[in-house]
Amino acid sequence: MASDPAADADESTPAGDPAGVDSRPARRLLLEVGVGVLLLVLLRVFVIQSFHVPSGSMEPTIRPGDRVVVTKIGAGAVERGDVIVFDGTTTFAGGVSDPSVPRGRLGRALSAGASTVSIDLGEQDYLKRVVGVGGDTVSCTPDGGLVVNAEPAAEPWLAPGELPCETPFDVGVPPERLFVLGDNRSESADSRSHLGDPGGGMVPLDDVVGHVVWRYWPLARTGGLGD
Rank of each mutant, 00 (worst) to 15 (best):
R103W: 08
S111Q: 06
P18Y: 11
G88R: 04
L29D: 05
K72E: 00
A77C: 08
I73T: 08
D87C: 08
S50H: 08
T89K: 07
T116Y: 03
L40N: 02
S23M: 15
T116S: 10
L39D: 05
F92Q: 01
G88Y: 04
T89C: 03
I84G: 03
E79D: 14
I119V: 15
S118V: 05
V53W: 02
L42P: 13
S50M: 10
R108L: 12
L43K: 00
S115D: 14
S118F: 13
R103P: 13
G16C: 12
R44Q: 13
G113F: 00
Q124E: 11
S118I: 05
S23P: 15
S55A: 10
A77K: 11
I62W: 04
S111I: 01
L43F: 10
V35W: 07
P25L: 07
E32S: 15
R108S: 06
L38T: 13
P18N: 14
G94W: 02
Q124A: 10
K72C: 04
S100N: 11
S111Y: 07
G20L: 02
G16S: 14
T61P: 07
V78W: 01
P64V: 08
P18M: 14
L39A: 09
G65K: 09
A75Y: 05
G94Y: 05
V68E: 00
R80D: 06
V53L: 10
F51L: 05
R80H: 06
V83F: 02
P102N: 12
G56C: 13
Y126V: 04
R63Q: 13
T71S: 00
G95Y: 00
G76H: 12
L31V: 12
P14F: 11
A19W: 13
G95V: 02
L42G: 15
L127Q: 07
A19F: 13
L30R: 05
A112S: 06
I62T: 11
A26E: 09
M58I: 13
F92E: 02
A114L: 11
S118M: 10
G107V: 10
G107L: 04
L29M: 10
D66W: 03
S57A: 14
L29V: 14
V70S: 00
D66I: 06
A93P: 03
D66N: 11
Y126D: 01
D22V: 05
L110K: 14
L106D: 07
I84R: 04
G94Q: 09
A75K: 04
G74Y: 10
G20R: 00
A109Y: 12
A114S: 11
V83Q: 02
K128E: 03
V21W: 04
R105K: 11
G36K: 09
L106C: 01
T71R: 01
I62R: 11
P99Q: 09
E79V: 11
I62Q: 07
L31A: 15
E59K: 05
D125L: 15
G20W: 01
P102S: 12
A77I: 08
G16W: 12
G88S: 10
D82A: 01
L127P: 04
P60L: 02
V78F: 09
P14N: 04
H52T: 13
R108K: 06
V70K: 00
Q124G: 05
V83A: 03
F46T: 02
L38D: 07
D120T: 05
G88H: 08
A93Q: 03
P102E: 10
R80S: 09
G81H: 08
A93T: 01
V85R: 03
H52W: 14
